[in-house]
Amino acid sequence: MKHHTFLRLIDPVKDKMFRLALRLLISKEAAEDATQEVILKIWNRKNKVKDYANIEAFMISVTKNYCLDQLKARSNNNLSIIHSNYDSNELSVHSQAELNDEMKHIERIVEMLPEQQKVIFQLRDIEEYDYSEIAKITKMNEPAIRVTLSRARKKIKEELLKIHGYGIK
Rank of each mutant, 00 (worst) to 15 (best):
I109D: 00
P143N: 13
K104G: 04
W43P: 01
H83I: 11
E133H: 05
H94W: 10
E90V: 15
D130E: 09
S84M: 08
T5Q: 14
L40D: 06
Q36F: 07
F121S: 07
E107A: 09
R19H: 15
D33S: 09
E32R: 12
P114L: 06
L68D: 13
H3R: 15
M59D: 01
L79C: 08
K169F: 09
M140Y: 06
I106G: 00
K28E: 13
R151A: 07
F58H: 11
T148Q: 01
N85E: 09
N78L: 03
K16T: 09
Y52Q: 07
S95T: 13
E111R: 06
N65I: 00
E37W: 01
I82P: 06
L24V: 12
I156H: 02
I168K: 11
I26M: 05
Q96Y: 06
N77W: 05
V119A: 11
R23A: 11
E90T: 14
K118Q: 15
L24K: 06
S80R: 12
K118S: 08
E158R: 11
E56K: 14
M140R: 07
A31S: 13
S84D: 15
Q36A: 15
L9A: 10
K162Y: 11
I81R: 08
R23K: 08
E107W: 07
I145Q: 02
R74C: 03
I10W: 09
K48P: 02
I26Y: 09
Q36R: 13
H164E: 10
R23H: 14
R23D: 13
K169V: 07
E29V: 10
A34G: 02
S80D: 05
T138K: 13
N47Y: 08
S132K: 13
K28C: 06
Y52M: 02
A31E: 12
H3Q: 15
N89R: 08
D125F: 09
K118I: 14
D69H: 04
F121K: 03
M112R: 07
Y166V: 14
K16I: 08
D51H: 09
L7E: 15
I10P: 01
I42R: 02
E142H: 03
I126S: 04
V110E: 06
A97M: 15
M103R: 13
N65W: 07
I134L: 02
T148V: 01
L79E: 10
Y66I: 01
S132H: 10
T63V: 01
L7W: 15
A144D: 03
I39N: 00
D101R: 13
T138A: 07
N78I: 00
K169P: 06
L113D: 01
I120V: 12
I156W: 05
K139G: 08
Y131F: 11
K28F: 12
E37N: 14
K41D: 10
K16W: 05
R19L: 15
K118P: 02
F18P: 02
